[in-house]
């Protein structure tokens, strides 16, 4: 029992602490307020803020006698509950604000790109070959494994999915047209672009973001080293250099996958496949795909780096920025790819 009424005096006793809060509250709630004149705390074993909160809520108008000074202090400390003022916002202003912020972000990105380019040209001499080679290894050679497997599988899947339909029409040999042109123009650039968005954009953001958090970027600036020229430029160069090569590589592997499937499911032997391939796959098709490479590379590198530089000086923001950079890069790559389709159509390529 935490309460007892004797001779119109309410004795509060035992432990009025957080463990017993719910039990005490139940007892206090059923108490008839007219049955006592004042509260006596002489039998109280322990009081914490939760007990004091109950006393403040339920015995506000009563005098509390025989209370130790330290308990009295706890009661007075928990008496004051500050009011919270939450900003009320209407939806229209929220929408306008977010749209304004989005547009501002695009302008910021453009000005960042300009700043980088100017800075790189100004400091072109301070670029080190060592970092460039390191980036070339990171950006291209280490990506070969995943591109090999995925491109091969994409070729296999397309050939497999279309084989049934083509066989119904007896158009077995047209598997070559279908696979080669679609891979060369659209799929290989897109696959490589998407892999790079997941691989490189995220790692650029994380790397530069951490350099910002640990003040390494500021340190470089104070030493007179341009972080754009020394850190950013090798990354951009590496991706712009590698993407056309990787797209070509991906195309070859995709066609290889399709060739193997065609042999098994459509009865098109590799020599026939290859012969047809030389007839249908014009250099134009290949060029239409490969042109996207440097542009995708530039997009991936710039967005990854931009999000990295946007990291605040707090470790938590690195995680948010990495997610954002991957999503934005994927978005940008697909939009640019769509633009290419429109332009090609327009030019009649």
């Amino acid at each position: 029992m935490f309460l007892e009424i004797k001779d119109r005096v309410l004795y509060i006793k035992d432990y009025w602490t957080v463990e017993n809060y719910n039990k005490i509250k139940k007892q206090v709630k059923v108490l008839s307020k007219k049955s006592f004149d004042y509260v006596d705390a002489s039998e109280l074993e322990k009081l914490d803020f939760y007990g004091a909160y109950l006393i403040n809520n339920f015995f506000k108008e009563y005098e509390i006698r025989n209370i130790s000074p330290s308990y009295e202090k706890i009661i007075s400390m928990s008496k004051e509950i500050p009011q919270l003022s939450k900003k009320k916002s209407n939806y229209l202003s929220l929408i306008v604000e977010s749209v304004y912020k989005k547009i501002g972000d695009y302008f910021q990105f453009i000005s960042f790109t300009g700043e980088i380019l100017v800075d790189i040209f100004r400091n072109i001499k301070s670029i080190e070959a060592r970092t460039l080679f390191k980036e070339l290894e990171e950006g291209g050679i280490k990506a070969l494994g995943i591109i090999t497997i995925l491109s091969f599988l994409i070729g296999v899947v397309i050939a497999y999915q279309s084989s049934k339909m083509l066989a119904t029409f007896g158009a077995n040999i047209f598997i070559v047209d279908l696979v080669s042109v679609s891979l060369a123009r659209e799929l290989s650039p897109l696959i490589v672009g998407i892999i790079m968005a997941g691989r490189s954009a995220s790692s650029f953001t994380a790397e530069i973001g951490l350099m910002k958090v640990s003040e390494e970027i500021d340190f470089m600036k104070t030493l007179g080293i341009s972080p754009y020229a020394c850190v950013v430029f090798p990354k951009i160069l590496s991706l712009v250099f590698w993407l056309p090569i990787l797209i070509t590589y991906s195309l070859i592997l995709g066609i290889l996958g399709a060739m193997i499937v065609s042999d098994f499911t459509l009865g098109v032997p590799p020599n026939q496949f290859f012969h047809r391939l030389t007839e249908v796959l014009d250099f134009d098709h290949y060029l239409a795909g490969i042109v996207k490479g440097p542009i995708f590379g530039l997009t991936v590198a710039l967005i990854g780096v931009y999000e990295g530089f946007k990291v605040q000086q707090k470790a938590e923001s690195v995680g948010f920025s990495v997610t954002k950079s991957v999503v934005r890069t994927l978005f940008a790559i697909i939009v640019i790819d769509a633009l290419f389709s429109v332009v090609y159509r327009w030019l009649g390529i």
């Binding site: 803020f49 939760y50 909160y53 928990s78 004051e80 509950i81 500050p82």
Partner: peptide, 9 residues
Amino acid sequence: DMAKIKLNL
């Protein structure tokens, strides 16, 4: 309320 009290404290 307790959160407010502790922040005040």
